[in-house]
Amino acid sequence: MPITRTEVEKIAKLANLELTDAEKDSFSGQLAAIVEYIDQLNELDTANVAPWQPRSVGNAATSHASRDDVVEPSLGQETALAQAPEPDEGHFTVPRVI
């Protein structure tokens, strides 16, 4: 299946990626080649096969048990904000949205 430049632009928008013109060109060719390869999956009849689900292997019952609902210490505001590129007065900041 060909992946046109318009298609690439649409996918990039969905993925929140701003691609350069050169990237749009190279990705459309490369993605088309990959998707063409992937299309060989159509040789397989999967009409009667259920999609894969994470299977319970091993001792799943106790692994996924809920813990007691008690308050425990977490990172705290200072640590949580320590890696933010532009924190301000205890908040994460973003460009103005209204």
């Binding site: 691609l19 990237e23 990705f27 993605l31």
Partner: peptide
């Protein structure tokens, strides 16, 4: 929106973008 798009374009390399694109598709 521009913050997200430009941060990700400048921050990610080509193979990462390629895989995000394929997965999004």
């Amino acid at each position: 929106s521009e913050l997200y798009r430009r941060t990700r374009d400048e921050g990610f390399g080509a193979e990462v973008k390629r895989r995000i694109m394929l997965g999004t598709f």
